[in-house]
Design a protein around this nucleic acid. Structure first.
Lengths: 250, 250
DNA sequence: CAGTGGTCTAGACCACAAC
DNA sequence: TTGTGGTCTAGACCACTGA
């Protein structure tokens, strides 16, 4: 263990023991330098570790504050798709959210792990639709949603390349064009945010994003779109019920 | 933007553009110092940022390597509970995993966000059961599972405080004791790992853990146990099907 | 065993926000 | 106004590991 790791461990234990409760500050850098008899950068490296863990947050002029993690709110993926006058919603909570900006449409390389879902080569050009969703009153950003659509699909349905795809969005356009009824599959994972995501969603350091990846296919299995939705992982959780149905062997 | 942020942005763009492909190295520190005409610590801070994002990984004697993110493997929470001779399993994949160590049982304060699920005061003493699950052949750790059980439950069912709870585990003991049929509710979120979790699961820096929190209740709604399972979020995703059932209004 | 990244120091100046 | 954390430098030595 190096010096800064020892100091980080000491501070971490004191935080979880409640020596420094949430919303209080840990000792300031000069005090920690004196206590541990080390240079300033050593202290700063220890604190940087705690910041990366999401435990503390430096606030200028106040000190390094112990973060108060709020209880998560639940998003229930109900395995039921809702459609209202705006479009499709995959859970109730998000139904209150609206685009805070006009969706941007661009072309670019498909991310590595989306390529296999879409059935295209890694790095291939696809159409990328970016949406910023949030509370229409407070204008607080709640989730970022990005759609990746193969070029052949956009060639066949040019409106998918437009910012405004009309009522019901791309899914209604695809179904009107004979690709319905669309089937969806979702998976949840997580990763660290890009700096852009962190800025838009006001994510503190050390907070990952929950990542809901949804593949839309035609009944014949043709991949139509991959949607990647990102949420503040400290603020949200995705819930679902478990049916009791014990079997003797899987 | 500060110097180190500019440098981090430049390097990040070069990485995603493919200038430095996965498994290759970015220029070494001395080269970056010369290129950007800054001191070494400035370069190191920029690289530390990319490490925290999970983009690169420093390897001594070789350089700073661009990480190759493997495709995630899917865990399907099938909404169906399986029980075999070992115990209960909530998905197929985990059914092949076994405890790599004897479970440890201790007493300690309940974590903040488990307290409300368990219906106890934040910081109250609970029984904590820790399990390390993994591949029995390679002995690679795949998931960590921690159970939190209120003291009254353990007083009523003392075997829940033992390391070995017998075939079927705590759920069978609770059901034998008249608390069944047990009902479960799950939710998925994510957070940064603790250093202990990172060490056990060999998590590189900048990789969060997927967190599956499961509440077990008796039919009367009495909270019996909260289980927190952690998985490498870069390696795993949790999947489920979506039933097509469009309703006019939610 | 040489070269890479890792740790640590002392010192300087900056920038922000609470008072 | 001022004290806090933020940035940056120059320099020294260490430790691991792959060529």
């Amino acid at each position: 263990m190096t010096l800064w790791q020892d100091i980080a461990t000491t501070l971490r234990e004191e935080i979880v023991r409640g020596v420094y409760p949430p919303d209080s500050t840990i000792p300031k850098e000069t005090a920690l330098m004196a206590r541990h008899r080390v240079g300033r950068e050593t202290i700063r490296r220890a604190i940087a570790q705690l910041v990366a863990e999401g435990l503390v947050e430096p606030v200028r002029r106040r000190g390094t504050v112990v973060r108060n993690r709020p209880a998560r709110r639940r998003i229930t993926r109900s395995r039921q798709v809702y459609r209202d006058e705006i479009g499709y919603f995959f859970d109730h909570t998000a139904q209150g959210w609206r685009p805070l900006q006009t969706p941007t449409v661009s072309r670019g390389p498909v991310p590595y792990d989306v390529a296999s879902l879409l059935g295209v080569e890694p790095g291939a050009e696809v159409t990328i639709r970016d949406r910023v969703m949030g509370d229409p009153d407070t204008r607080q950003v709640k989730q970022l949603a990005t759609s990746y659509i193969p070029v052949e699909i956009v060639t066949q349905f040019p409106i998918l390349g437009q910012a405004n795809t009309g009522p019901g969005g791309i899914y209604d356009r695809l179904e009107e064009g004979g690709q319905g009824p669309i089937e969806w599959r979702e998976a949840i994972s997580a990763r660290m945010p890009t700096p852009t995501e962190a800025r838009l969603m006001r994510l503190p350091a050390g907070v990952p994003v929950l990542r809901i990846v949804r593949l839309a296919t035609s009944p014949s299995g043709r991949p139509l779109e991959v949607n990647e939705t990102r949420l503040n992982a400290e603020e949200w959780e995705v819930g679902y019920p478990i049916a009791r149905e014990v079997s003797a062997q899987a």
